[in-house]
Amino acid sequence: MVQSSSRIFAITLRKAHSYMKGLGVEPEVLLANTGLSAADLADPYKLISEEQARNYYLNLINATNCESVGLEIGWRTSLSDLGPHGMAMLTERTGGEALRKTWELRDNYNLLINWRYSITDNLVLHTIQSAEEDPRLRLFLVERALATIQANTEEMFGEAMQPLRLTLDYPRPEHVASYREKFNCPIQFSQELTQLYYPQEWEHRLLETYDPEAVEILGTLRASLHNKLSSEVDVVEEVRLALRRKSGEFPSLERIAEGLAMSSRTLHRKLGQRDVRYQDLLDDERRRIAEDLLLNTGMNIQQIAVQCGFSDAQNFSQAFRRWRGKSPSEFRSSQD
């Protein structure tokens, strides 16, 4: 039986905070009535009460109309977002050892849900439950937990490690498409329990990030993981460079992913972990080119539209007004 802790790490709120900020939600809205500050969420050792976490998540739910927000936040949560907990998982030798490390540290990372795992019949089985009375909060917490488990599994083993099955103890929601996007397996709603099924081979797979010194000497854990994570490709910068490589041509997410030797699914997830979307990077690059051509050339609006990857001047003008709050002609005139 899972024991619930009255104190959890504030860092468990960090990914939710950055994701909501990306949606334009002010930090003050999320932190209202929690007694927390933005600095608290950046402190990997700050402990908060479950009530503070509960109030934070209720603020979050009330601040968005996105029904799948729990799935979206969980899917973007990398192991490094979980601080020492996630780092400890990465330094273990196998998936099973990482799972046991998670179990040992679960109390201070409890996301207001009851989580347990078992190994039976050649399966690794995750069971997720929530006793929250508010149905919106309960769904958010369960969806976030499920998506986090799958995102972290793919981070450790690659996207080929998909669950065999997902069962859920609630009716099919309207945003079922988000489930299919994140869980590449059969999905069954209105079942007795909410459970993720993985093949037991998951338990014995070696982790490329295994670090015996970090396992033995917890004092060096953060430094060890920092070196590992800092060596990763900066996918945001790589996408920006790809979009700038050839004037007037903007490769798709799929083409950029191919050039980075990863799937589009992996690139999409890595961008999400940085709270960035491909479309935002594309718009930034188009806007940068448009402003430069408007201010420094005599090209007409149709010519600039083509250079920015638009089929006609009308679509370009609509996009530019969305970016800058004025038409291209108005922007050019205002800078004279």
Score class of each variant (00 low, 15 high):
225 L>W: 08
112 L>P: 00
33 N>M: 08
245 R>H: 12
232 E>A: 12
155 E>A: 02
215 V>M: 03
314 Q>W: 12
125 L>N: 03
210 Y>S: 14
215 V>H: 05
234 D>R: 11
125 L>P: 04
176 V>N: 03
165 R>L: 10
154 E>L: 09
49 S>H: 07
203 E>K: 13
298 G>R: 06
39 A>V: 08
92 E>L: 04
19 Y>W: 13
48 I>Q: 01
146 L>P: 00
331 F>A: 08
310 F>P: 00
180 R>M: 11
292 D>C: 13
83 G>K: 04
31 L>A: 04
40 D>T: 04
293 L>I: 09
189 F>M: 06
309 G>K: 01
42 A>V: 03
198 Y>E: 11
192 E>S: 12
319 A>F: 15
130 S>G: 08
220 T>A: 15
126 H>E: 05
181 E>G: 11
53 A>D: 04
95 G>M: 02
24 G>A: 01
168 L>I: 14
141 L>K: 01
288 R>A: 12
41 L>G: 04
49 S>Q: 09
124 V>A: 03
282 L>Q: 08
288 R>Q: 09
202 W>T: 09
183 F>V: 02
62 N>H: 14
3 Q>D: 13
115 W>E: 10
44 P>K: 01
193 L>D: 12
105 L>F: 06
42 A>N: 06
187 I>M: 06
224 S>L: 03
176 V>M: 07
174 E>G: 15
251 P>R: 02
302 Q>K: 11
93 R>D: 10
124 V>R: 00
244 R>F: 12
95 G>I: 07
239 V>P: 07
141 L>M: 02
232 E>W: 06
230 S>D: 13
114 N>D: 10
210 Y>F: 14
150 Q>F: 00
75 W>F: 07
9 F>V: 12
23 L>W: 05
58 L>S: 11
191 Q>N: 06
227 N>A: 14
119 I>Y: 08
157 F>Q: 05
253 L>C: 07
12 T>V: 10
211 D>Q: 10
146 L>F: 02
200 Q>Y: 10
124 V>E: 03
171 P>E: 12
329 S>H: 05
120 T>F: 12
65 N>P: 14
226 H>G: 05
203 E>T: 15
113 I>W: 05
45 Y>M: 14
142 V>M: 03
70 G>P: 00
204 H>I: 15
175 H>M: 07
56 Y>L: 09
154 E>Q: 10
306 V>G: 10
84 P>Q: 02
313 A>E: 13
19 Y>G: 01
289 I>D: 06
87 M>K: 14
88 A>L: 14
178 S>E: 11
10 A>T: 02
328 P>D: 00
123 L>Q: 14
114 N>G: 15
154 E>I: 08
263 S>F: 09
110 N>Y: 06
128 I>E: 01
284 D>C: 05
212 P>M: 10
312 D>S: 07
265 R>I: 10
13 L>G: 01
112 L>H: 00
258 E>Y: 09
163 P>I: 08
262 M>R: 11
183 F>H: 00
111 L>W: 13
153 T>K: 04
283 D>F: 07
270 K>G: 02
28 E>S: 14
279 Q>G: 09
169 D>C: 12
102 T>A: 15
219 G>E: 05
88 A>F: 02
280 D>S: 15
193 L>E: 15
32 A>G: 05
274 R>Y: 05
204 H>R: 15
297 T>D: 10
57 Y>L: 15
190 S>M: 06
17 H>A: 07
208 E>W: 07
81 D>M: 06
32 A>T: 09
141 L>I: 03
